[in-house]
Design a protein around this nucleic acid. Structure first.
Lengths: 223, 223
DNA sequence: ATTATATTTTAGATTTGCCTAAATTATTAT
DNA sequence: ATAATAATTTAGGCAAATCTAAAATATAAT
């Protein structure tokens, strides 16, 4: 049960695209994998033979249970390594994705589980995405966007919707990161911008777009 | 300057074989890499074009300066990861080699240097082999075999010559490991066996073969 | 419903790293 | 010095993963 890096990348990409819509399209995959549709078709045939996915020509593709399990293992590795890189090696959260793309293909199961233990079983990676446990269970983080937070309520940043470089740059500038505790101070209906306060820091205003893409766990009022 | 896993493995194997003898033979390489001589010839031609080695047909092969630098970077990664696996993830030193064979091909230079720092710049890996620093300098560990140690002198185990499974099994049984401080108590000329004492443990006798392959740093008498 | 457009698949090549079998060159033994 | 043997290389092929161009199918538009 060992698959090539390339195959693992296909499975992972299909898994992610399936979150958006049930069945994944050849073009969408080609796009996600930076390759040509013809290459995708070739590979889908091979992955079908290995029973990792259901595929009928012209009909799109879905992962089988086995495919999904594989995808989750890869995502688990990716996110654990990201956590390791940020927490232990002090990388910035913008720079870890690329390295984790390589590390996620290291095969040893024992390594992953030991790493998980070493890191004290983190629930989410530096971008706030949940880390599947060793059984493949994905913790469902309570996540809502700052836009939906009531006035004067507080929350802890645990995810970013738009993870573009520009967005991350802005967040870095405003000193907003995973784990930041924020309080909603004011909402401006005119443009949807919101003024928030980060513990121990002066208040900042964020645009509608940023507010929608800044995800938090809503604090259950009681401190 | 990125090379395939396969190419990196060739370079590493050549580097190791060159420690034994200056010029490396096609058959020796095929043997080390578990492949066929014909495949080796093919690859040598490609590596020559990339200026990683000097190769003339029927004349054997040597690394160029560039090839040697690459080899050392790979070995550095291998040994740092081994150290990490043993010290931080508590793997046994027999089980880390295989995993490190994969990890050594992760490309990020920054990752290696951060890992080195995180581990506090270790000088040698769990098998006692020296870890090159980030400039490629290999610390020359003072290493002599227990056979060469004078009577009543003490030393610290820092390497194993014969790293066969049988050897490791024996050492484990006698509780001898990298870092063990030993003292030579008695030498039996009849068969070359030696009685040694490990700090805080009863004395044990090791055969001539084991003594020759147990490498230590000789303590400069003064505590 | 038929045509135009977009998506997907097939066909045929390419590159990398490997293989076997045969030919070539080196080495060793007599 | 030459024959036998061993080591190495060449030639021709194969599988994986990709590509381009052309064909087939599906979707949208009138």
């Amino acid at each position: 049960m060992k698959y090539s890096v390339s195959k693992e990348n296909y499975i992972k990409a299909i898994f992610h695209l399936q979150q958006e819509q049930d069945s994944v399209t050849t073009n969408a995959l080609a796009d996600a994998l930076q390759t040509k549709p013809a290459s995708v078709t070739d590979m889908l045939k091979k992955l079908k033979i290995q029973k990792l996915l259901q595929y009928e020509k012209y009909k799109g593709v879905k992962l089988t249970l086995e495919g999904r399990k594989l995808a989750i293992q890869i995502i688990r590795k990716h996110r654990l390594w990201e956590y390791f890189l940020v927490e232990k090696l002090h990388f910035g959260w913008e720079e870890v994705h690329e390295i984790a793309e390589e590390l996620e293909h290291i095969s040893s199961r024992k390594l992953v589980d030991r790493l998980d233990e070493f890191l004290d079983f983190p629930q989410s990676d530096p971008h706030g995405d949940p880390i599947p446990d060793s059984n493949g269970k994905i913790p469902s983080l309570q996540q809502l966007s700052v836009s939906d937070l009531p006035l004067n309520s507080t929350g802890t940043v645990n995810g970013i919707g738009d993870q573009s470089a520009d967005m991350l740059e802005l967040l870095r500038h405003k000193n907003l990161q995973i784990g930041s505790r924020i309080e909603v101070k004011k909402k401006f209906d005119v443009d949807g911008s919101i003024e928030i306060k980060i513990r121990n820091q002066p208040p900042v205003t964020i645009s509608d777009h940023v507010a929608k893409n800044l995800l938090v766990a809503y604090d259950n009022k009681s401190k």
